[in-house]
Structures are given as structure tokens and as C-alpha cells.
């Protein structure tokens, strides 16, 4: 996984709450067997609307999504994270993320930063009155800056460390293979098996 320390890019104000994973990418786009190529399905239902924020040229190259609360609810599809990344997003900011989406982001290398709703409102106002304005997200200091706005964002310590180091989760766990083997030896014999 690529290391993430600091990113500056065009901020995209998405004035919507409860953006579920079916809206981020509908199921019909989930048939690919790769981790790439999902950008076509990103916000598919809204992309035909000329007023949709990503259809405005100033925001089209956006890489920091500023969304309403309860972002990523619903399905466990990691394709939602890949679709955002495939499009070019590096960071999503919201006052509240659905658990599975936040977990998937951390695994796939998308920074899901939690900020107060009042900060989201300030960022929206700033990005809407300055289309194409940039937002800087610093994972080391856990801060987000845009124009005169400077605020902290929350991300759990472990995910932050992994993203900063660009570490592969599976590699870390396999380092504890002995502990897993030891645990397995103590499992009751009546636990079900599939074969």
C-alpha cells in the first residue's frame, strides 16, 4: 500500500447526508473482477445531472470529498472505496462514517477523516464560494486546512499508523502465525467445519 502523509487537492462539496454505498456505486457496476475501472460507476445515478457537483468543470479534478453525515452506509462493497479512488479521490471528510465503509477505506488506503459537522459546513461554504479551491489534509498532524479554515480530524491511531507506513495488514497478522496456531489448538472439537 502507498504511504500517505499529506495531500493537497481540489475539494468537492457534496451536500448530501446518508450517501449510501448503492449511491456511491450501484450494484450493476460490481461485476468486474478487478480493483480498477470502477470510476465509471461512481455516483452513477447523479452523473447525468448537469448540476451534480462533479459535472462542474471546477470540481471535476477533485481529490478531497467533503460529504454530509452518515457517509457510506449500507452494503459492505469495498468497490465503493475503489470507485472513489479510481476517480482520483484520496480523502473523504464527513461528520460520521458507516463502520464498514470506514474500515474498507483504511484497508484500501483512502483516508476517511471525521470532522465536526460545523467544520463540514464551513468547508462547504468555502468550496462553493471558491470553486476549485484546494484542501490540504495532513495525516501526521491530523489536520485539514482550506483558506482560513484549520481544523482537526479524527482517524483511529492504528489506521493512521498503517497509512503513514503504508503497511500491509495481512503481513502484520502473519507475523503472529504462532499465536494463531496456538489458538487453533484450543478450539473445541464440536465447532463446525465445512469439509
Amino acid at each position: 500500500m502507498e504511504k500517505f502523509t499529506r495531500h493537497t487537492g481540489v475539494g468537492v462539496p457534496l451536500r448530501r447526508s446518508n450517501v449510501d454505498t448503492d449511491q456511491i456505486i450501484p450494484a450493476v457496476y460490481l461485476k468486474r473482477v478487478t480493483r480498477t475501472g470502477f470510476e465509471d460507476g461512481l455516483f452513477a445515478a447523479w452523473r447525468n445531472d448537469p448540476d451534480f457537483v462533479l459535472n462542474k468543470p471546477e470540481y471535476a479534478a477533485g481529490s478531497v470529498l467533503v460529504a454530509g453525515p452518515d457517509f457510506g452506509t449500507g452494503s459492505s462493497r469495498e468497490h465503493a472505496v475503489w470507485a472513489l479512488q479510481n476517480y482520483g479521490f484520496k480523502v473523504v471528510l464527513s461528520a460520521r462514517f458507516a463502520d464498514i465503509f470506514r474500515g474498507n477505506s483504511g484497508k484500501a488506503g483512502l483516508v476517511a477523516g471525521q470532522v465536526d459537522e460545523s467544520i463540514i459546513e464551513q468547508l462547504w461554504a468555502h468550496l462553493e464560494s471558491n470553486p476549485g479551491a484546494e484542501v490540504t489534509v495532513d495525516l501526521e498532524t491530523r489536520t485539514v486546512t482550506a483558506g482560513d479554515i484549520e481544523a482537526d480530524f479524527a482517524i483511529d491511531d492504528y489506521t493512521r499508523w498503517r497509512l503513514l507506513e503504508g503497511l500491509d495488514d495481512i503481513g502484520i497478522t502473519l507475523g503472529h502465525a504462532d499465536a494463531i496456531t496456538e489458538f487453533e489448538a484450543g478450539r473445541p472439537a464440536w465447532k463446525p467445519v465445512t469439509q
Partner: peptide, 15 residues
């Protein structure tokens, strides 16, 4: 429910 990266993690480590 888990995402695909976690599916891979469980396949590889059962944890």
C-alpha cells in the same frame, strides 16, 4: 459484514 480486503485477510489468516 466485511470488505474485500478483509475477505483476503480472513482467507490468509482466519483472523
Amino acid at each position: 459484514g466485511i470488505g474485500t480486503s478483509e475477505v483476503e485477510h480472513v482467507l490468509a489468516t482466519q483472523t
